[in-house]
Nucleic acid binder design. Structure first.
Lengths: 219, 219
DNA sequence: AAATTTAATGACTGGCGGTCATTTGTCAAG
DNA sequence: CTTGACAAATGACCGCCAGTCATTAAATTT
């Protein structure tokens, strides 16, 4: 008879394997929080999870597949947090502020989102990519369904808005991701220039214009 | 007396060192074109340039400093190509199309631009970062000066537009950078979803809204 | 010609992602 | 209860990487 995974030293059934994969992802998240993207390694993950390095590769094809799976979870979290308890109507400003707050409320989300295409997906098998894209599509459609009403836009417009805003998030985070130097003395001219690349203001400003533009093209 | 660098086996004067650094960057560009971002390594660069690996580190602090220097050159190229021969007035659509064409006309630009903050600048000394940011500021101000007239926007508006558009470029490129699988058979639903993340359409659409929004906030 | 300076070298290190022959936990058959 | 089959788990191992530094030698100065 099949016992609980925690009592076994091996995962045998598909359910047990799935459970083990999930717990590996939970550990991976704690590692990512402590070490950041650059400090995340399979060696550290295997130590922290208490398994051999080879074991990780039974559950994930590459390191990036771990991170992509982490991103899928983050996107789910983002989607449900974004759509939880929204009222039936919503101003653009409310919506954008909500997107921003939901994005930054878990530090993993933007760190992964901003590296999705250029880094993470560069080392992913086609099969894993298809699974991931399908999961993303599901989340996007869920958001479209839940948001198009409150935003008073049709589905196509809502998807277009989300697409633009998603790109903007990536770009705004990228510009702000080399955080400025605790205590380092930055010359005034450089500091002033870098001030134009603050995540929140840069994102919210352009996001507002995008929504406004989509709204104007309604007719 | 100081001779030409090509006749010497060593760079002694500051000018000779600067020349050698420049030729290393030229070689680095050819390597990047052949190998791409992921395939770019200091070992390959040293081989192709005909110098020892240690020599590279006399001219660049890290691999990312090579790439950041490459990006600076690309940004210069972008800036001058973007502003070369523009007429005194310009529609938003013309401007945006010009930005797009100038971006894609050299394959290095977007590949580096989209990884600038999240990857490249993560392994750069503060000193090198300050130099780079100052160079970027110079290019941005040059673009603002040359474009605000033709766009009929004030300086602040133009800078704001460039900032938003820059973020949008990063995000749009990221979403399209896992190019789709020569010959791989992608399921219809996934292919259709990924169709929403085409670089050109995604960029131009939102960029248009941003300009439009900035124009509307003129008064 | 000798001494000085310092650019250039490349063997070396530690750590990485990823592999695979071997070990061993688990279950089912006799 | 024993035996055999299966496959999950292991960790030593591989090749590659970024980056270092004691040593070498090219150029200039004395």
């Amino acid at each position: 008879m099949s016992r609980n995974i925690t009592q076994l030293k091996r995962a045998l059934t598909p359910e047990q394997k799935s459970d083990r994969r999930d717990t590996l992802l939970v550990t991976a998240k704690t590692l990512f929080m402590d070490a950041g993207y650059e400090g995340f390694s399979m060696g550290l993950l295997s130590k922290r999870a208490g398994v051999a390095k080879g074991t990780l590769y039974l559950y994930f094809g590459t390191k990036e597949e771990v991170l992509l799976s982490l991103y899928s979870l983050e996107l789910e979290r983002f989607c449900s947090e974004l759509t939880a308890g929204i009222s039936s109507v919503m101003t653009d400003a409310e919506f954008i502020s909500r997107i921003y707050e939901t994005s930054v409320s878990d530090p993993l989300f933007l760190a992964l989102h901003a590296r999705l295409g250029t880094v993470i997906e560069q080392n992913i098998s086609v099969d894993a990519l298809i699974i991931s894209k399908r999961a993303m599509a599901k989340q996007f459609h869920a958001m479209v369904n839940q948001l198009s009403g409150p935003l008073n836009l049709n589905s196509e417009q809502t998807l277009s808005a989300l697409s633009g805003i998603s790109a903007l998030l990536t770009g705004s985070f990228d510009g702000a991701s080399r955080q400025a130097f605790e205590g380092e003395n930055i010359p005034e001219d450089v500091a002033s220039f870098m001030g134009h690349f603050d995540l929140k203001t840069r994102f919210e400003k352009s996001a507002g214009y995008i929504l406004q533009g989509i709204r104007a093209s309604r007719c």
